[in-house]
């Protein structure tokens, strides 16, 4: 009996993976199926930007500020105070900016996509679209996933800039460094191998947020409580994905660039 239960657990897990693969194939085929929903895509981009810009901005600002305050004492003991801008910009651009932005978007966007599609499922709107001969994957899923894959990198870049500005203010609590000198130092310490992997990573984070949100919403059950379940599990799963992707991406970039 127990063995059977364990087996069915495994089977469920495998079936879950199968569902993800099927959903991904449907998404992928529909990108190129013709009749791309431009206006819905733009609307989604706007919604994502509008909904998370504020939060990403504030969080990144505080992160930049706090990091400088935390790093300062250690770098002073090392006599490397002048390295502060460089340290901050590398930490922020390579790692903290992308991850913080993606996690915020997992909480804000994946959940709202999950809830929105989940409630469309419960109220049979998705079925109605399908039965009318329209293509709900193209209209609802493709637009949202592409919008998150496009907007989250953008948000991360803006977040990085705001974070660096936060760091500038923190530095000026104690030292006085001119704005242009600070930013020159920051930018000089960044190169292509910092920026490109970071942007590539955020595209994947954005994809994860959109994909998981859509998947959870699209596959939610038809009970009323399932909308909440879809939103909640979208956040949890998307966050997990983000960290897994991050771990893999860091391995790959260090192999390729930092040897």
């Amino acid at each position: 009996m127990e063995a059977q239960q364990e087996l069915s657990g495994w089977r469920k897990w495998l079936e879950g993976i199968g569902d993800y693969v099927v959903f991904f194939t449907r998404f992928f085929r529909n990108i190129f199926a013709g009749g791309f929903e431009w206006s819905e895509f733009v609307r989604q981009c706007y919604e994502i930007g509008y909904r998370s810009m504020m939060l990403v901005g504030i969080t990144s600002f505080i992160m930049g500020l706090v990091l400088i305050l935390q790093l300062r004492p250690s770098l002073i003991t090392l006599g490397a105070e002048s390295m502060l801008p460089k340290t901050l910009s590398v930490a922020l651009v390579r790692e903290i900016g992308p991850v913080i932005t993606a996690i915020i978007c997992a909480g804000k966007i994946a959940s709202s996509i999950g809830a929105e599609l989940g409630s469309m499922k419960v109220t049979e709107q998705i079925d109605a679209m399908e039965v009318s001969g329209a293509n709900p994957v193209q209209y609802l899923v493709v637009t949202r996933i592409l919008a998150t894959s496009f907007m989250i990198p953008l948000l991360a870049i803006i977040g990085d800039a705001i974070g660096l500005f936060g760091g500038f203010l923190a530095l000026n609590f104690t030292d006085s460094i001119s704005f242009s000198l600070y930013f020159n130092k920051c930018i000089a310490s960044l190169d292509f191998t910092d920026l490109l992997p970071a942007v590539a990573k955020t595209v994947l984070f954005g994809f994860a947020v959109g994909f998981v949100g859509c998947y959870k919403g699209y596959h939610s059950d038809k009970g009323t409580e399932s909308v909440g379940v879809a939103a909640n599990s979208a956040v949890v799963t998307a966050s997990l994905w983000i960290f897994i992707i991050d771990a893999i991406a860091v391995q790959i970039t260090s192999l390729l660039f930092y040897k």
């Binding site: 469309m120 709107q125 109605a128 679209m129 001969g133 329209a134 209209y139």
Partner: peptide
Amino acid sequence: KIGFLFQGGALYDSMTVRDNLEFPLTRV
């Protein structure tokens, strides 16, 4: 060629009535 009326109407609730009705015309 088949119309399906759902139990609850299944209107797309992010769109106005007009957009709801235009949806099958422009998409289908």
